[in-house]
């Protein structure tokens, strides 16, 4: 498995949010961890979004696993960057996208599907949610 891109948000010298994109053959694994609560996450994450849009089209991804279970909090200022990241995945990959989320997290149950845009038939067709218990 190879890390192809990495984005993080630093606060006070510490990384408070991390997203990592890894590739294993034709499978993409995207993870989110930590918290997004800063005013403008793009100041930290725009290069990561750009990198995903540049790299993913050439990788021939046919299967994707997105893991939100370690994302503890996302304020509404973080919504668009989550949309940009997931949109890059759907736009530049093929095949099923399995989304792991916490069963008892209201944001992941109610708002995340809107940000991924599962109301779009093409996105819905490719998406399978897996609800997980928090460890």
């Amino acid at each position: 498995m190879k890390v192809i891109a990495f984005g993080d948000v630093m606060d006070g010298g510490t990384s408070v949010f991390t997203s990592v994109a890894k590739i294993d053959g034709h499978k993409l694994l995207l993870t989110f961890s930590g918290i997004i609560r800063i005013d403008n996450p793009y100041t930290h994450l725009q290069p990561y979004v750009d990198e995903l849009n540049t790299l993913l089209p050439g990788l021939g991804v046919g299967e994707t696993n997105i893991d939100f279970t370690k994302l503890k909090f996302c304020n509404s200022n973080g919504f668009y960057v989550i949309m940009d990241i997931t949109e890059a995945v759907y736009r530049h990959t093929l095949g099923e996208v399995v989304v792991h989320r916490l069963a008892e997290d209201d944001w992941q149950q109610e708002t995340l599907p809107i940000l991924i845009d599962v109301d779009d038939a093409g996105v819905a067709e490719r998406t399978r949610f897996v609800d997980c218990a928090e460890l």
Binding site: N40, Y42, S76, N77, F79, Y80, D106, E110, T111
Partner: peptide
């Protein structure tokens, strides 16, 4: 990329 404007809606839709 307008800031704000989502918080109150989020409280109702997401958190009831």
């Amino acid at each position: 990329r307008l800031r704000g404007g989502l918080g109150l809606l989020r409280l109702v839709v997401e958190n009831k």
